[in-house]
Amino acid sequence: MTTSLSTDHPGGPEALLAGNPRRRAREKAVHTIVTLAAFTSVLITVGIVGSLVFRAGEFLVGLANPSDADIAEARGPIGFSNLWSDQWAPRFFDFDIKTLLVGSLIVTVIAMAVATPLGLGAAVYLSEYADSRVRKILKPILEVLAGIPSVVLGFFALRWISPNLVQRFFDSEGQSLLAAGLGVGLLTIPLVASISEDAMRSVPGSLREASAGLGARKKTTTLSVVMPAAVSGLVAALIVATSRAIGETMVVFLAAGASGNSALFTVSPLERGSTMTAAMASQASGTDGTITELGFGSLFFVGFVLFVITLVLNLLADRFVRRVRHGY
C-alpha cells in the first residue's frame, strides 16, 4: 500500500483527516436525495388536504352562490338546505349527506359485526393455541385472504352473498346494504386478525408462565391475562378495521345497489343504499345522465367528510398502537 498515515501529507494532517472530497460530495448528495424522498410524503399530504379543502370549499361556495347553469338545471332553490333532505341525488341537487353517513354506518356496523369475532378468534387461536407447524400453514392462507382485491369481494358479495345468503334468509329484493356489509366484513377479517395477533404475541411469555404457574387453564390465561395485557393493540386493530370499512369503496359500489348515483334515505340494511365512498365512485364514473358542475363538486365535499372521519380514527388507533409499544 502506498497510502501513508504519516503527518507529512501535502496539505498537512487536517487535509488528510478531511478525507476525499469526492467521497464527501457523494455523502452530501445522498443525504439530500433521501431527505427529499422523505419530504415527498409531506407533499402528498399537502396535496390531498389541499385538493380536498379547495374543491370542497368550491362546492360549498357554489351552493351558496349557484351559477346560472346550475339554477337553470335545478327544479327548486339552491342553498345549504339542499344538504338536508330525504335522498342523495346530485342530479336533482339533493345532497343529503345523512343518507350517505347512515349508509356508511350501516355497512361499517355489519362489517365489524362479522370481522370482530372472526378476526379476534382467528388471532387468539394463531397466537395462543396453534403449534408452530399449524401456524406456518394457516397464517399464509389468511394472508392470501388479505391480498384479495376488494373488487373481487364486491363481485362475490353481488353474485354469491346476495342471492345465497341475504335473499334466502331475509326479505330483501336483490342488492342491499347488508350484502355489501358482509362483503366488507370478510375483507376486514385478515386486518383485525393480523394486528391483534401481533399485539398478543408481543405480550411477554413470562406473564403466561406466571398465570399457568398459579394453576390457571389456557382459557383463563388467554382471557384474563393475555388479552387484557394486549388490550391497546386489540382496540387499535378494531379502530383500524373500522376506518378501513368506512373507506372501502368497491364492495359497496358493486353490491349495495344504488342506481346511478342516487339513494333514498334508509335505515334498513335490507334496502338498496349508498355510502360516502360508493357515492364518490358513482359520481366519478358519470353514470348520471347530466353531470352538473355542482353535482360533480359534491364528490369532493363527500371526500372531505370521509377523510376527516378516517383521519380521526387513524390518529386514535395510532395512540393505542404506541401504547402497546411502550408497554413492554
Binding site: S41, V42, T45, S51, S243, E248, T249, G303, L306
Partner: peptide, 24 residues
C-alpha cells in the same frame, strides 16, 4: 411529523387518493 404523516397516509381510504389524482 414525517413518521406520523406516513402512518396516517397509509390509512387514508384509497378513494381519497383518487381525488388527489383527479385534482392534481
Amino acid at each position: 411529523l414525517i413518521n406520523v404523516n406516513i402512518r396516517n397516509l397509509a390509512g387514508v381510504p384509497s378513494v381519497v387518493y383518487g381525488i388527489l389524482g383527479l385534482t392534481v
